[in-house]
Nucleic acid binder design. Structure first.
Lengths: 182, 182
DNA sequence: AAGGCACTGAAACAGTCGTTTCAGTTCCTT
DNA sequence: AAGGAACTGAAACGACTGTTTCAGTGCCTT
């Protein structure tokens, strides 16, 4: 009757991609099947058939967003050092075209803290581990506190940037930290 | 018929306080009038009468949360220096009893980024300004980039702490930054 | 005593929600 | 030709949403 995530049929991935673009600028919180289906040329019936439930769809959307993030993280897996890694991560995060993804990220992060059950479960923790893992790969043998600090600076600067749009101020704060880092 | 925020009647502030405690551990996103009213010994009718609308209630709840935060910020208004201010702010943020407030804060922050209209409007920007203003008061004449960096470290560490609960690692990351700061 | 103000209960309104039921398509395999 | 997947449309289900209508309570002031 329904279908789980094991068989990513063509139509399924096509609709997931369309839904992903949809939530990137409308957010996940008020997501509703009927408006979503209408916007991406489908129907609630089909979405439910392909994803099992709304929660199933949301899980896939979160996984899709995380995949977008991991594509970036995989591009700097060499042991280039903490400062260089932070510099490249910030260059990516500060790019205007990635802002919808970062907004979605903050939304899902907050949601998974308040509502530990449901499809959000573990999202916040998972992304912390993702980033810390990459930073560890970039600078093996470094102090975990150092990695945690770099991650905090990046995340805090992203929060600031998303709220104020002040690329200059947030960027100079980050550069200040990079200087302290070497 | 209804009543605006100009006259904070006794019953009104009493219910607001009860509702505030309620959202502190259930979150704002799935807030619904009937369950809320039942939990705090009221009725949807009364909440709507006292706050005008659900959005009005949410606005008041966000203002209430921000007030809680400002109480803290007001306690260190002397020009004690950036490092000392950061140290005290972290001591406050890392305390377990403030975790519900911080969770609520992240939730509202993310929501106000995705949905710039409605009662959330401007919440993220407002709290950035709040904190930056306090840091400016603690260390007048300092480089704005320095203040932005300190704020980013605090916020990033809070995000990490909320997701992982790892007080030791986040705390040592923050102490590392404090050392670099002096 | 009378009027008005602050508050409240019960019920209904119109709308949306996720999900299900039933009934088909289309297409590929045997 | 037959059968079974994969997919789809239309409509309904029950539950829930914020909000409104109507009808009251008490209580304080004049």
């Amino acid at each position: 009757m329904t279908q789980d995530s094991a068989s990513p049929s063509a139509r399924r991935t096509e609709l997931l991609e369309a839904a992903y673009r949809y939530v990137l600028d409308r957010g996940l919180t008020d997501l509703s099947l009927r408006p979503l289906a209408a916007a991406i040329g489908s129907s609630p019936r089909v979405l439910l058939f392909l994803f099992g439930s709304k929660d199933g769809l949301i899980r896939e959307l979160l996984a899709r967003a995380r995949a977008d993030e991991l594509v970036l993280l995989d591009r700097l897996d060499g042991p280039v050092g903490l400062a260089a890694a932070a510099e490249r991560l910030w260059a990516w995060a500060a790019a205007p075209e990635h802002r919808p993804l970062l907004r979605l990220w903050v939304e899902a992060y907050g949601r998974s803290l308040v509502e530990p059950d449901g499809p959000w479960a573990g999202f916040a923790k998972a992304t912390v581990d993702d980033w810390l893992g990459v930073l560890a790969a970039c600078d093996p043998g470094a102090d975990p506190a150092r990695r945690t600090l770099v991650l905090a600076v990046l995340r805090g600067a992203i929060l600031d940037l998303l709220a104020t749009g002040d690329t200059a101020r947030t960027g100079s704060a980050l550069r200040l930290h990079l200087d302290q880092l070497r």
